[in-house]
């Protein structure tokens, strides 16, 4: 079963980090990713560019409408994500808690639909 781990950012976590803190955080994240891979949990992981780089596209009516900015404006926003493979929520939570620690942010765990294949 796959789970999406969303890394939750806010303006403060962005501003607070100085260079050496960011460096330490990144190497902790790298080490964590290596472990996810070694244990067979890793599917995908990536940091995201700031929300103001987002574009919304609505092509439901046939006439495509393009809007600048994220679909939700909020103080907290998605800063990056992991996609992991885990047998159940207990394992997903354990990995997410480690993820929260290494990247020093809150995270949200949400399951993908049970794969039908």
């Amino acid at each position: 079963m796959q789970y999406l781990i969303s890394v939750i950012d806010d303006e403060q976590t962005i501003v607070a980090g100085n260079d050496s803190a960011v460096q330490a955080e990144m190497s902790a994240v790298d080490a964590f990713n290596d472990r996810l891979k070694a244990q067979g949990h890793w599917v995908f992981a990536e940091g995201l560019a700031a929300p103001n780089t987002a574009t919304v596209i609505d092509n439901r009516g046939g006439a495509s409408v393009i809007t600048d900015g994220p679909f939700l404006e909020s103080k907290e926003f998605l800063g990056g994500l992991w996609i992991i493979e885990a047998p159940d929520l207990d394992m997903a939570i354990k990995l997410a808690a480690e993820g929260s620690r290494v990247c020093n942010r809150k995270v949200e765990v949400r399951p993908f639909h049970v794969s039908e294949k």
């Binding site: 919304v56 596209i57 439901r60």
Partner: peptide, 19 residues
Amino acid sequence: ASKACDRKIEVRPCHNHVS
């Protein structure tokens, strides 16, 4: 994609420097 799944879509770039 918006047409295929009949939903609004948001596109956001990844950093591409993590891992």
